[in-house]
Write a protein that binds this DNA or RNA. Structure first.
Lengths: 239, 239
DNA sequence: CCAAAATCAAGAGCACTGCTCTCGTTTGTG
DNA sequence: CACAAACGAGAGCAGTGCTCTTGATTTTGG
């Protein structure tokens, strides 16, 4: 049933994959702004114009690498999340955040492409990047929503309980979340802390020789944050 | 007593300032990676090689712009801090954070240069950028240390109270801070939240059309964080 | 089966970049 | 006043993204 591909079609697929692989390599090694189609062509023993038969432009390659990086990151975070017991939401979040941090530290250039300064003159096409780009934050939000719903009768929904002036409804529907404003706020706080700490570290704001173990700092910060809605907090612990 | 400057020396100073001004302009308009000495030269009705009489390289200009941006940001944050009553540390922090956020939103390209992806192939010389680059975080830390010390006898120092595995001493001495580990942790949490929320917003992670008023979200998040060590918290409110 | 059509790699070329070097000219100074 | 320092202009080198043409190869349809 599988269509037999002509040698030329196979070669085309192979070349496409090689370009993407070398592109990922150059991105990791030299950073996004230094990504050069000519340099990639040289690595492939191709002349620069030949690459344009496979990739429309440098920006299109960049988009492919953005999607590639978002997907790899989200896969790792999801795997870490799933490695925790199904009903231990706190541990799920801990492992997810640590996986996010670990990936960022090991792939600084690709992390920068996703969560750093936008590449000048390049606008990521939303229709391609939004879905993979929101997987991580959606997972975190959903886990917090799940944790918050423990003990609440399934028939009830989370009380909107609107905080002054802010309307979360559009996001609630976008991510299909059943979550009250209090926990929504907490989710954003967690997300901001994760990205904030990671960016400060990866982008060098702690200095070249930080007088701290940043790995330990990160986990302590996340644990501290999780304690806010844990046992003993006024929100009523839900794990 | 003031040395009379020759017309040529005056012209040199003026040209230097014009280059910096146009550079700041291009940086704000087109972003850091698109910063071009040739384009700046065109704007000044100069030939490109002439600019090199004033600026050694593109990287040197970038460094000047980094220092310039750090300084302007720190000045605005400091002014906001000083606009609050001298003994109202909570309000000092609120205004400082809001000033940081406001500046970042109004100067996204310059914010990206400071807190976004490092420019490829460019390494900011620490001896020039560290001092202005740490002014904001130092101010926040000092204010929190001041707030924490209220009611504590001046003769006593903050108890180290080391949290497992983390040694804050090197940073404590670097910033000359008298602060216990608990509040140090809080300071980092605040700093990470400020940078995290700001970066998410400026770098477009909330989407092109966020279903939220991000300005309100920011202040609510900061206020929520400040409540953690405010009245009613187990840390004992100090404002 | 073989000619027409599609696809391919290669190369030249355009406009841009950072940066260097040289060449007259202008300006400051001993 | 003469000499040296500083100056702007211009040419040039190596690199970039991208387009267009050319000639060879492969696929496909009559």
């Amino acid at each position: 049933m599988t269509e037999q591909l002509s040698p030329r079609a196979q070669a085309r697929i192979r070349t496409n994959q090689r370009i993407l692989a070398v592109g990922r390599d150059h991105l990791a090694k030299y950073g996004a702004a230094a990504l050069s189609l000519r340099a990639i062509a040289r690595d492939l023993d191709l002349v620069s114009s030949a690459v344009y038969r496979y990739v429309a432009s440098r920006d299109e390659l960049l988009t492919m690498l953005v999607v590639d990086a978002y997907t790899e990151l989200a896969d790792e975070v999801t795997a870490a999340h799933d490695s925790a017991p199904a009903n231990d939401h706190r541990e799920q979040i801990r492992r997810s955040c640590n996986a996010f941090h670990d990936w960022a530290v090991s792939e600084p250039s690709r992390y920068a492409l996703l969560y750093g300064s936008p590449v000048p003159g390049y606008q990521a096409p939303a229709e391609q990047t939004t879905e993979p780009g929101t997987r991580v934050v959606a997972l975190l939000m959903r886990t917090i929503a799940d944790a918050a719903s423990v003990g609440r009768p399934a028939s009830e929904s989370a009380v909107p309980d609107t905080i002054d002036g802010l309307d979360f409804d559009s996001i609630r529907t976008e991510f299909d979340l059943d979550i009250d404003d209090q926990h929504f706020h907490f989710a954003i706080s967690l997300w901001a802390t994760v990205v904030g700490l990671t960016s400060l570290e990866v982008f060098g704001q702690f200095g070249a020789e930080p007088g701290l173990d940043l790995q330990t700092l990160f986990t302590l910060q996340i644990d501290g944050l999780l304690d806010r809605i844990g046992p003993g907090s006024k929100n009523g612990g839900f794990w």
